[in-house]
Design a protein around this nucleic acid. Sequence first.
DNA 1: TCTGCATAGGGGTTTTTCCCTTTATTGATT
DNA 2: AATCAATAAAGGGAAAAACCCCTATGCAGA
Lengths: 212, 212
Amino acid sequence: MKYSVVVVDDHNLLSQAIGSLIEDFEQFRVLYLCNNGQELIEKFKNPRNIPDIVLMDVNMPILNGIETTDHLRQHFPQVNVLALSIEEDENTILKMLRAGAKGYLMKDVKKTELENALLEVLKKGYYHTNTVAKILVGSLAQKETSVSSLKEREIEFIKHACTEKTYKEIADDMCLSYKTIEGYRNVLFEKLNLRNRTGLVIYAIKNKIFVP
Amino acid sequence: MKYSVVVVDDHNLLSQAIGSLIEDFEQFRVLYLCNNGQELIEKFKNPRNIPDIVLMDVNMPILNGIETTDHLRQHFPQVNVLALSIEEDENTILKMLRAGAKGYLMKDVKKTELENALLEVLKKGYYHTNTVAKILVGSLAQKETSVSSLKEREIEFIKHACTEKTYKEIADDMCLSYKTIEGYRNVLFEKLNLRNRTGLVIYAIKNKIFVP
DNA sequence: TCTGCATAGGGGTTTTTCCCTTTATTGATT
DNA sequence: AATCAATAAAGGGAAAAACCCCTATGCAGA
């Protein structure tokens, strides 16, 4: 009996293509393809649609890979989720693993490595490439002040700071005194170890607080 | 006789996967796969390696899709290049088409649309989805001041401006007077219609001059 | 010679950055 | 109930950096 795999990816061509690769593998078969997390969860309502492995893209519309993986971890812990993404961003990888993914594959993996990953996940319960392992180790150091430590109002301010507005204008927009805005800024410079507004903008974009 | 297709994509899995999709098509066969533009150009030295169609990714290391397409347009104009990318950025699409691509496919196309695109390109010499057509029309308006109108030294300055350095420090780094740096900045603000450095940073990131 | 361009200076206003203090509020701890 | 600690909001004052406008020189190419 072959192990069943489901591919979840909003890029239609990719999911089809990856599906057809998997069909070539001796020990695996594709159960079905999905375009996003919502479709997958819908499918899972029928127990016959629950596969051994889910190959999950991270960036998808409607219900993204992180949220979907989190849902699966809570409701279908027996399913092995393998993330498959072009996204090499450290935070994304960490979020995905925290959500319960058993491994994180870059989309540039070779066919044989994919097969290997599928086998390993079933055997050991996880599969990590060197790249991901390195990132994991790296994340243990520093990173004390992550986005999650920022307050709601600070995040809001940062978004305003990522525009051409002066602080005076931001103060007006947020219905606060100019001096209060200065306070927010100074606290953030301190917390995030920044020198000036440019640093804050770059930080915001790196951490996806502001998407240009 | 089937038409020959070459897939150029640094994401190994993708190129293999797309390749195997194409093998399913009645009228097409995959000649070989490449990881980047340089590999492709190397291959072309042997005339038997020149295919009817090249499916080209845009973002690749070493020699990217735009440069590669440009090279093919100049040296092998008989080859039809179809861009295949997740990149939906307007400027990127325009650059690719300007470089000589006969069409631009998003990676979320369906299998049948890919086949259709391959056939159309051979028949009509081009293939454009609605999305791309819309972007082309949109680009006719505005967009006078595109990245391409910026000078080499200006681009360099912009990259420096996307750091926490002060203009004084940037001046030192670029071995120019502080006043010259101010000149660059003022010219850019004028050209790109910006108010301050924050605007410049956002512009740089949007246009991929600086990648955070 | 004229033009365009890179470079750079003078001098001024506005904005940003930095330090330090104050007040009101809220939530927790005696 | 009284006290304490933490926090959000706000202000004064000053130096540094950013922003703005206008001018000038030297050099390469038409």
